[in-house]
Design a protein around this nucleic acid. Sequence first.
DNA 1: CTGTATCCATTTCGATACTG
DNA 2: CAGTATCGAAATGGATACAG
Lengths: 132, 132
Amino acid sequence: MRPENIRVPALPPMPGPDHGDCKAVASVLARVGDKWSVFVIMMLIDGPRRFNELKRMINGISQRMLTLTLRGLERDGLVTRTIFPTIPPRVDYELTDLGRGLAEPVKALGEWAIAHLPEIEGARSKFDTRNE
Amino acid sequence: MRPENIRVPALPPMPGPDHGDCKAVASVLARVGDKWSVFVIMMLIDGPRRFNELKRMINGISQRMLTLTLRGLERDGLVTRTIFPTIPPRVDYELTDLGRGLAEPVKALGEWAIAHLPEIEGARSKFDTRNE
DNA sequence: CTGTATCCATTTCGATACTG
DNA sequence: CAGTATCGAAATGGATACAG
């Protein structure tokens, strides 16, 4: 049997051509999926905000979750954290260029959500009543 | 004191003008944020798919999570579920018009994620090494 | 083939208390 | 003001077994 006739076994664990990025992309989408990340990004579109300012704007968020959300956004390079060593201390959070770029598709998604909310809620209640 | 001088107390539990939609919009965003919903929507863009077909395409998803994800999408009116009473049984899932509409901004978000993945991963490792 | 039911580990998150 | 630390409740998700 000559080399050109050797059969190479298929490669089973390779579902699609873009699977290499799959987990990585998922990690980015997960950030957007975080309940609070989107709200924080929205609140920062108009300019920098202080910690408690954000806390008041977002209404239901706990101090803990705001801290964790901001740390996550900072880690991904989406917001900057600026400390003013005054007393009382002051910390400003601001979107980076990257963060402002992300805000665009996020805003589009949010606008779609608002526009189609009636349809979705209708579908939901219809589905729920159909199954008691 | 005349009527025009009466002071109306401020309304404390009303953080912003768009707060009424806040919880509702969040519930839509939460669906997109679901780890698997976005992948399922992507897989359905090209046309209807069967249950196990989706399961194979998505690679890491468990049977349980695929069922739950599809039920959620169906409940929101984003996919339809068509049963063919053959044996063995066959069930097709397909995007509705609403679902195809949602796919647009979702795709934009996914493309942004892929395009800026290097920046984000760079920011992450930088952040992680800076904090040991 | 297309699910449902159950169990269990892990993660997530809110409440609370405390620090510089 | 801007966090950190800790705890327990709840949600999430995988594995497995079973059913129509």
